[in-house]
C-alpha cells in the first residue's frame, strides 16, 4: 500500500493558475497583434517575435544564473514581450527592441525579485527608458501600409499641434489605420481583448472604467474631442492591459478605482499641458510608484464585528 498523501486543507483548488491567466492575457492581446500586422505589415510580426524571444530568453538565463526557479512556463515573460512590442513603433531597429526586452525582464522584473515582486510595470518602464535612450527611432512613426494618407504623425501629436487636416476620422481610429505604436492603434481590437479579460474575470472593471472615464470627463471639461481622446494614443492598451497588471497595481476595488482615476488625471495633464502628446505610459508608471500607499490605504478591513 502506498503512503497516503498528507497535506493541509484545502485538498482541491480552483482551475486558474498563473499560467492560465497569462494565457488568457495573450489570447486577449491576439486581436491587436493581428491588427498590427494588417496595419503595419509583416515587420510588426518581426518586432513582436524579437521582443517575446528576448524576454523569454532573458528570464530563462537570468533565473538559471541566479539559481531561481524557472518561471518561463508561467508565460508572464511572453506577456511582457508582447506588451513591450505593442508599445514600440514598427520601424524600431531590432537591436533596440531586444535591448528594451532585456531591460524589462532583467532590470525591472528580475532584479526586484521576479514575478509578483516588481513594483513597476516592466513593459512600460522599458518603453520609457527606450524613449529617453532612442528618442529618434522611438518616435519615428511609419504610415500604415493600408492607409492612403501621407501623414504618419500620430493622431494625438496632430491634435496637439492643431493639424486638423491630418487628424484621422473616428472610423480610422477604431480600425487603427493611422500612425502610432504597433499595438495601440486599433481601438476595436483592444476593446475586444479588454472585453474578453473582463468576461473571463481576469481583470475587474474598476481600473479601466475609472481610467477611461476620468480621461473622458476631463476631455469634456477641457473642451476636447472626447471620443478622439479615448481612441487615439495608448489609452485603451494602457487601461485594459497595463494598468491592470496584478503586481504593480492595487488589488482591492477602491484601490483600483483610485489607481484608475490617478492614471486618468496624469494622462490628461500630460496630454493637454505637457510637452508630450501622449501620457499613458508615464501615468501608469507614476501610479505604480504610488501603489504601495494606495494599497495600504485601501486594504480590506477584517470583519471583526462589534466590541465583545
Amino acid at each position: 500500500m502506498n503512503k497516503l498523501i498528507s497535506s493541509v486543507s484545502p485538498h482541491i483548488s480552483g482551475k486558474r493558475t498563473t499560467q492560465t491567466i497569462m494565457l488568457d492575457v495573450i489570447i486577449a492581446l491576439l486581436p491587436a497583434a493581428i491588427a498590427s500586422v494588417i496595419i503595419f505589415g509583416l515587420r510588426s510580426l518581426l518586432v513582436i517575435g524579437v521582443c517575446i524571444a528576448v524576454c523569454v530568453l532573458s528570464e530563462f538565463l537570468f533565473e538559471k544564473l541566479c539559481q531561481r526557479d524557472n518561471t518561463v512556463p508561467d508565460l508572464s515573460a511572453v506577456v511582457t514581450g508582447l506588451l513591450l512590442a505593442f508599445n514600440l513603433p514598427v520601424s524600431i531597429p531590432l537591436w533596440q527592441a531586444a535591448f528594451g526586452s532585456i531591460v524589462a525582464i532583467i532590470v525591472v522584473k528580475q532584479l526586484f525579485g521576479g514575478i509578483g515582486q516588481n513594483f513597476a510595470n516592466p513593459a512600460i518602464t522599458a518603453r520609457i527608458i527606450m524613449m529617453t535612450a532612442f528618442s529618434g527611432t522611438m518616435t519615428a512613426w511609419t504610415a500604415p501600409v493600408t492607409a492612403d494618407t501621407v501623414s504618419s504623425a500620430t493622431p494625438l501629436a496632430a491634435a496637439a499641434k492643431g493639424e486638423i487636416a491630418s487628424m484621422p476620422s473616428y472610423l480610422t481610429l477604431l480600425l487603427g489605420n493611422h500612425g502610432g505604436c504597433l499595438g495601440e492603434t486599433c481601438a476595436l481590437a483592444l476593446l475586444l481583448g479588454g472585453i474578453y479579460l473582463l468576461a473571463k474575470r481576469i481583470i475587474s472593471w474598476h481600473t479601466p472604467v475609472a481610467f477611461i472615464a476620468t480621461v473622458a470627463l476631463m476631455s469634456l471639461i477641457c473642451g476636447k474631442d472626447v471620443l478622439y481622446q479615448l481612441m487615439a494614443g495608448g489609452l485603451l492598451l494602457g487601461a485594459f492591459f497595463m494598468a491592470t497588471d496584478y503586481a504593480t497595481t492595487p488589488s482591492t476595488k477602491w484601490g483600483k478605482i483610485i489607481f484608475g482615476i490617478g492614471c486618468g488625471l496624469i494622462t490628461v495633464l500630460i496630454r493637454f499641458w505637457g510637452n508630450l502628446p501622449e501620457g499613458v505610459s508615464f501615468s501608469i508608471l507614476l501610479m505604480n510608484l504610488l501603489t504601495p500607499y494606495i494599497a495600504k490605504m485601501t486594504r480590506n478591513k477584517p470583519l471583526v464585528g462589534g466590541a465583545k
Binding site: I5, S7, H11, I12, S13, T17, T18, I21, D69, T71, D74, S76, G114, I115, G116, Q117, Y246, A247, T248, P250, S251, T252, K253, R299, N300, K301, P302, L303
Partner: peptide, 28 residues
Amino acid sequence: EAKLPKTTPCIGCGECTNHCPFRLDPRE
C-alpha cells in the same frame, strides 16, 4: 484528484483577500 497544481510565486492578484469571507489578507 489528489494532485494539486505546483506552488509558484505570488503574483499579487489579490484573489485571496477578495474572496476571504472575513476580508483578511493572507498575502500580508
